[in-house]
Every structure is written in structure tokens, then in C-alpha cells.
């Protein structure tokens, strides 16, 4: 896998802001290189670096290639972890009933539950946001640690962020599906 930072000509830093990633990508595309391969790796680099979680993963790949990320759910995520399963499961049951329904009326009968499910999923997303922010706010600290060869904190954060990102995606997916009801 190519180094996404190098691909876009950006410094290997966790603190990149999305606007500079976007500008670097646009410059690359404007270059007029028509090679599909180069275009694909540039697009990929943009995607990886725009999102803080995949940026952290790409950064760790370069800085500490042999380190294993922490895969355990941290205690501060446990409450959310316990909440998320039941909300998603009940939403899925509702969505399955909705998919089976073939008439407007049968779908309308489910509208009330759909509204409730939407509120439930939105509630989860609101819990995820601050937890995610608390971890990404520590990026400057991870940069400082890296200078002295210390990666324990960033590896643990990556493990937690991956859980949070996955849950966030699952919630968003449900929310979009509910919007289509």
C-alpha cells in the first residue's frame, strides 16, 4: 500500500486539517495526470486522510508498523456498547417488516415505530460523538509521544476509535434506512 501522505505530498502528521487534504487532492487532479492507477491511489489517499480514524491508522502503519492495535473495549465505552446492540436489533426487526410490506398502508402502519426507532438511533449517535472527540483531541499528545518512540496511547486510541467508527457507521446506516421508510 502506498503512503497516502506522500501520495498527496503532505507531511506525515495526525494534525492535518480536511481543507489541506482537499487542496492537495485537487492540485493532484488538476495536474492532468490521466493514468488511472495514479488517480485511484490519489482518491484513496484523500479518503484515508480526510477521516481522523483512518488517518490515525495510516499514520501508525508508517510510524509503528509492527505494533498490534488494542482490540478490547475500554471501560468508558462499555455503557454504550451495552446499549447499542438492542437498539440496532429492534431497528433491524422493524426495517425487515418494512421491507416485506408491499403497500403504502402496510408501511404507514409502521410509521409510529419508525419515528421512535429514529429517535433511539439519533440518541446513540449523540453518545458516540463526544467519545470520539475526546480521543481525536489527543492527537497532539500522540504526535509528542511518537517523537520519543512511545505508541501505547495512540494504539489504544485507535482500537477504541475503530469501535466508535464502526458503531457510528451502523447507526448512520440504520438512520438512512429509516429515512427511506
Amino acid at each position: 500500500m502506498t503512503n497516502p501522505f506522500a501520495r498527496l505530498g503532505l507531511p506525515e502528521s495526525l494534525l492535518l486539517d480536511p481543507a489541506s487534504v482537499e487542496d492537495a487532492w485537487r492540485d493532484l487532479r488538476r495536474d492532468g495526470k490521466t493514468d488511472e492507477e495514479a488517480e485511484a491511489s490519489g482518491n484513496r489517499a484523500r479518503t484515508l486522510l480526510s477521516d481522523p480514524v483512518s488517518r490515525l491508522a495510516a499514520w501508525l502503519d508508517l510510524k509503528a508498523p509492527d505494533a498490534a492495535p488494542d482490540r478490547a473495549v475500554a471501560p468508558e465505552l462499555m455503557d454504550l456498547f451495552a446499549n447499542i446492540g438492542p437498539v440496532l436489533a429492534s431497528t433491524d426487526t422493524l426495517l425487515a417488516r418494512h421491507r416485506k410490506a408491499t403497500t403504502a398502508l402496510a408501511r404507514a402502519v409502521l410509521a409510529k415505530e419508525a419515528v421512535a426507532a429514529q429517535l433511539g438511533v439519533q440518541g446513540l449517535l449523540q453518545e458516540i460523538q463526544p467519545l470520539k472527540a475526546a480521543l481525536t483531541e489527543r492527537f497532539p499528545e500522540f504526535e509528542r509521544d511518537a517523537a520519543s518512540g512511545e505508541f501505547a496511547g495512540s494504539l489504544r486510541a485507535l482500537g477504541q476509535l475503530k469501535f466508535l467508527k464502526r458503531w457510528e457507521e451502523q447507526c448512520r446506516e440504520r438512520l438512512l434506512a429509516l429515512l427511506s421508510t
Binding site: T103, A104, L105, R107, A108, V109, A111, K112, A114, V115, L119
Partner: peptide
């Protein structure tokens, strides 16, 4: 017959959806 019932209940369906959003 299904198609006729489906069509006859369009307004009813819309009312039901409207009611679901009341209070939200």
C-alpha cells in the same frame, strides 16, 4: 381487487404517517 384497495387507502396511509410525526 388488491390494487383497488391499495388505491382507496392512499389517503388513509398518508394520515397515519402524519399522525406518527405528531408530538415529534
Amino acid at each position: 381487487a388488491n390494487a383497488a384497495l391499495d388505491e382507496a387507502t392512499q389517503t388513509l396511509a398518508a394520515l397515519l404517517v402524519e399522525a406518527a410525526f405528531e408530538g415529534v
